[in-house]
């Protein structure tokens, strides 16, 4: 049996990315019901909000689901306690080191899976007791690291003995198959689930993702040390111009503050942050979470078999 499925008690090795403001109980429950691992993103939200979301998720599904804890959140301490109290089975973490919550979570038998951007950090997380790591390449949407999925995943796989989940740039059976070939045991997919029927973001946001082409994302904030990928619009244009002009951190932060909310909730895709991964260009249809998961599993098998056959016939005859 696949090590990640076995560890987490899920049917398919597909995680839904913990996208702040986006990933609430509705999409998480739908992905878990479909056989993957749905993930509620705590983002910068207060602990009470998260508690309600976890309870709402449990009302829809009794399958395992996870919570993504954003460690830079002002509410991180309370959020860490809530996930333990509410009996969440899996925690993924981003933007830092979950070390100080490790004991609390492990005592409850929870599985802790940090997102890592480099080999050294992956090794450090393993040493700190992580059950698996998500190696996330810079193709992803939102806050990103520098390395691509293609180079990061195999190197992390070689460096640690815990399972590795690949993330960044994966949206169909081909990407899924490629990630498995690089040694990943599972994939995490964000952008494709943005347009899932159960994903309750503003329609205008979904439309932007569906219309996006291969070159439509840009990275802002490289100068601040906190790069963010999203679809280009007036906001990214102003931001990049200000960075070029050497604007100070405060001004840049002002421009970025509340921008994701503006896009996700208010549907302002001109001046809001329409975060999405580079793979947005590949995503062209609205589907339910079940359809997405089923299609990924079907295509994974088809792609693998067809390519292996072709390679054998063409190159090893």
């Amino acid at each position: 049996m696949n090590s990640i499925c076995d560890m987490l008690g899920i049917k398919y090795p597909i995680f839904q990315g913990g996208m702040a403001w986006v990933a609430n109980h509705a999409i998480a429950a739908a992905v878990s019901e479909a056989g993957g691992l749905g993930i509620i993103a705590a983002g910068n939200a207060p602990a009470d909000w998260l508690r309600e979301e976890i309870r709402a998720c449990k009302k829809i599904t009794n399958k395992p689901f996870g919570v993504n804890v954003m460690l830079l959140s002002p509410y991180a301490d309370e959020v860490a306690k809530v996930v333990a109290e509410e009996g969440v089975k899996v925690v993924t973490t981003g933007a830092g080191n979950p070390g100080k919550y490790m004991d609390l979570w492990k005592e409850k038998g929870m599985k802790v899976i940090p997102v890592v951007p480099s080999v050294a950090i992956a090794k450090r997380m393993e040493k700190g007791g992580a059950d698996a790591v998500i190696a996330e390449g810079g193709e992803s949407g939102g806050h990103i690291g520098e390395l691509t999925t293609m180079v990061l995943v195999p190197q992390v796989v070689d460096a640690v003995s815990i399972p590795v989940i690949a993330a960044g740039g994966i949206a169909d059976g081909r990407g899924f198959a490629a990630a498995m070939m690089l040694g990943a045991e599972a994939v995490q997919i964000g952008t494709r689930f943005l347009v899932a029927e159960e994903c309750k973001i503003h329609e205008a946001y979904k439309e932007r993702v569906l219309k996006a082409t291969d070159i439509d994302t840009v990275v802002t904030g490289r100068s601040t040390g906190h790069p963010v990928r999203g679809l280009r619009n007036q906001l990214t244009r102003s931001y990049l111009q200000m960075e070029k002009d050497g604007a100070d951190l405060n001004k840049l932060e002002q421009l970025g503050a509340g921008a994701l909310y503006k896009a996700v909730v208010e549907g302002n895709v001109i001046n809001g942050a329409v975060m999405a991964g580079q793979i947005a260009g590949l995503i062209t249809k609205r589907q339910t979470a079940q359809e997405i998961v089923d299609e990924l599993m079907l295509d994974l098998k088809e792609v693998m078999e067809a390519r292996v056959r072709q390679i054998n016939e063409e190159l090893y005859k």
Partner: peptide
């Protein structure tokens, strides 16, 4: 050095000097 470099350096120092440097 950025934060990734710092972790690289910390890991290398731990190995070289046989110390353990906590995240805090």
């Amino acid at each position: 050095a950025d934060s990734l470099d710092l972790f690289e350096i910390v890991m290398a120092l731990e190995e070289e000097f046989g110390v353990s440097i906590s995240n805090e």
